[in-house]
Amino acid sequence: MLQTALKRIAASVPSLVGVVIVTFLLTRVLPGDTASYFAGPAATPEAIAEIRQKLGLDQSLPVQFWNYIGDLVHGNFGLSLTTGQPVVNEIAARLPASAELTLAGLILALVIALPLGIVAALRQGSWVDHVCRVVATAGVSLPVFFTGLLFVYAFYFLLGWAPAPLGRLDVFASAPPTVTGFYLIDSLIARDFATFRATLAQLALPAITLAVFSLAPIARITRASMLAVLGSEFIRTARAAGLEPSTIVIRYALRNALLPIVTTLGMVFSFLLGANVLVEKVFAWPGIGSYAVEALIASDYAPVQGFVLAMAILYVFLNLCIDLLYGVIDPRVRIEA
């Protein structure tokens, strides 16, 4: 088992290297001259040259790459022009907000999509199956920022069920003392149920928006892989041996069907992390996505690059987790390692 884990970790190293190289290249092809950009429009050529030297931009590419890696190792993602703060600090401070939203969306999607896909496969052609197919096709067709806006209109403006789409907590409430950074958990730890309710109310719409978006691929693959497994020969053997339907569906079919579902989770995460940016903008969610969007609008590129790199590293890590999970389910991967 440890062998497999080591092997998987080793396998994610090239991805990490690739990510770092690409982000470095992206910093190098910044629009225009980075130094004159940093110096501001009124800078003299001397001042630009000075800044160029200070930023190390006068050196050769490999040296710059080396310096870039050195900076990354020390957690130096550069400074934000607009706030003057180190990018890494700001990202770290805003990460829990994004993580709480994304996880809430994912969990909600899984809770709905898995049973839906399974029932659709078991009752092929029934109304559940039709619902599943509609959800699977419609879900991937919905622009996530548009669904978010529709929800705001319906549940905030028309029905008044949801609070104003303005962040994690309304302006009058105070954040719970930080333990995990997740307001839901922190407010429970602090036994502050009013804050918990307020947090939940704020989280509900953006989380549902994300869930609607990521539901489709999960439901689709669950249905498809359950159907494929249920039609396979070992299920016929299990039926011919008289095993109970519950045993066949859960222990035999579902565990095998989980393999493609887990693989799809990688793609779902990719979708979620991207959709997160849009949803955060719609709901003014103070996460790293809206941080990057604000920086983009202000033409402040260090935060954008920091954001891309942070997301990529997070994603590589998530994929590693998925690989490890796959190894736990599938003995073939485990033993052949």
């Binding site: 020969e233 016929r236 041996a241 008289g242 565990r255 073939r332």
Partner: peptide
């Protein structure tokens, strides 16, 4: 019928490897 299958009448198949659950001992 399920009680009969496996206890009274059973079946073996072509392609034995596919006839077994691949991820269960």
């Amino acid at each position: 019928m399920r009680d009969l299958r496996g206890r009274e009448m059973s079946m073996i198949f072509q392609n034995p490897r596919a006839a077994l659950n691949p991820i269960r001992p």
